[in-house]
Design a protein around this nucleic acid. Structure first.
Lengths: 301, 301
DNA sequence: GTCACAGATGAAAGATATTTTCGGTTCGGT
DNA sequence: ACCGAACCGAAAATATCTTTCATCTGTGAC
């Protein structure tokens, strides 16, 4: 009946597997082979020397080291250490795993379970991969901003609106733009002390990059929320917040998991800003709550 | 406030600490110093090279290696790997100490962890509480609908738009309405064979109930997605999908968790409908993907 | 189709880290 | 004080990791 879907917090290997997925597109073929090997069997790889791993993946030592660097470690030695830790974690925490994709003939109960599980996974990965330094910088900029513009189209457009709505609720001046022309028109008005935020999973959505570029060139502080930290949008971003990229299937397109991931980042931004501006945010939140109360019919028992 | 994280010398670190205690008598003075350092701070020592650890303990590399051997490892390299694993385990052991609400003075890292955790919780609760019978009925209605209207205002409005976007992608005719007047105007057009969906957390949002009532009275199949299964909105709903209502705090208003919950329900609806109409849904999904491809700049390596 | 170029790749040289060797030192017993 | 045994660390030897650089491969321009 109701499957047990709790206890999935912080999937052991999630952090690294997610990193591999996020970075895979920016990797070369051989590096991908190495990354895959490492993600699939952290423990096994931890037991290998550079040379061993190079042979196993049919590449060279140099490539292994390059991959380690790309994954954020100073060198192979450190990757290996991290791998050992990961393996130990996996060992201790049982790895349940509903690995199967959602199939066309899955009963609805399974669909619910799998979707919930995958979204939980996405959240854990995102939280693990979020750079709190960058987040802090973005929060600081937002908290002190004269005004804030948020750009996003398609599914990301809704996330952009969500963020703008939230910021408005704590007394900030924020606006979301889905229309690329209006977005650029508005971006021209920004200047130092303003903040512009672009939300795009692929990081290559021209309609979103353009207004961010304009804002950037006019001196605004710019933030990019993207799943591809090496994508074009980051060129014009002072701060980059990375969302996780999870496995996608035909019935669960990327748009779905990227939205979950983006919303978590947006929530973090919101709470961060609310903390920093607590003096003004708290009364503003209360006020907006009050203002909406009369839109609700009296609630029956 | 930061949770108390007492060092519970449990099973994970016990193995090594115990070994040290057992073997200590048979160790020479310098080796004891090394063993002690390793037992006290596995993580810290894992970060050191032989030379580093030798200096730290005021001994030599040879002694460190000898100690490693005595502890049962082939050499220092392997001890170091084990140490890293141990540290990771200890680390993960203290993780689930996130029972507290988000506080104003929480560091950002905690905010991220807590938010992710709470949203995961919300997802699990929603999945557990979702009535698959009602869901199936709603999916059936959607799959066969001539057209579908989705109503939602405020935060729920974004969810409504998300659902409409998704349904459009698989070739259905769907529209989201945030403007209550336009929503009612549109609802009047609905008739048997059409579907109207109202999304409201409180279930008492007049602006959303009204169009649903009109749709209901005109013979459309009506669905309510709400956190209050006993609220006014359900009066006019043929099928009720319940979202979970989780604890809210000042810094994490209800709107935030209800959104997560609503989106999961919406995703389930979407996937359910996509399954039932797979023949037409799959090509439609592919087509919409294709159509958007050219909006993305080519990605750099 | 060919050419030129940028980037990817691996072999080997170079730098570090680990292990072993070996001689000096300490300490207890006589 | 002397002897022997165990302890210890400096430095050589080895293994491992990192960097460099020449070659190769795929891509786009013409």
């Amino acid at each position: 009946m109701t499957q047990d879907v709790k206890e999935t917090f912080g999937s052991p290997g999630g952090s690294l597997a997610a990193k591999v997925r996020t970075l895979a597109p920016s990797m070369t073929r051989s590096m991908q082979r190495v990354a895959e090997a490492v993600a699939n069997d952290p423990g096994g790889c931890a037991a290998l020397t550079v040379t061993g791993l190079a042979e196993l993946t049919g590449t060279s030592e140099a490539t292994v080291v390059r991959t380690a660097r790309l994954l954020g470690y100073p060198g192979y030695r450190d990757l290996r250490l991290a791998l050992a830790g990961l393996a130990a974690q996996q060992q201790s925490g049982r790895a349940p795993a509903i690995t199967t994709d959602i199939a066309v003939d899955d009963p609805l109960a399974d669909v619910v379970t799998k979707l919930a599980y995958e979204e939980q996974q996405t959240l854990a990965d995102t939280a693990a991969g979020l750079d709190t330094g960058q987040l802090g910088a973005a929060v600081g900029a937002l908290a002190g901003a004269r005004r804030t513009d948020v750009y996003g189209v398609g599914a990301s457009g809704l996330v952009a609106q969500d963020l703008a709505q939230k910021l408005l609720r704590i007394g900030l001046i924020a606006q979301a733009h889905s229309d690329p022309h209006l977005a650029v028109t508005n971006a021209v008005q920004l200047r130092s002390g303003d903040v512009a935020i672009a939300i795009t999973h692929s990081g290559s959505t021209g309609d979103v990059i353009e207004p961010l570029r304009v804002a950037f060139e006019h001196g605004a502080t710019t933030v990019a929320i993207t799943g591809r930290p090496d994508s074009p949008v980051t060129q014009y971003a002072d701060h980059v917040l990375t969302t996780s990229t999870s496995r996608e299937s035909e019935l669960r397109p990327a748009a779905m998991s990227s939205r979950t991931s983006q919303l978590l980042v947006v929530d973090c931004l919101f709470v961060g800003v609310a903390q920093r501006t607590y003096e003004t945010a708290a009364p503003a939140l209360a006020a907006s709550y009050e203002a909406l109360a009369h839109r609700h019919r009296t609630n029956p028992r």
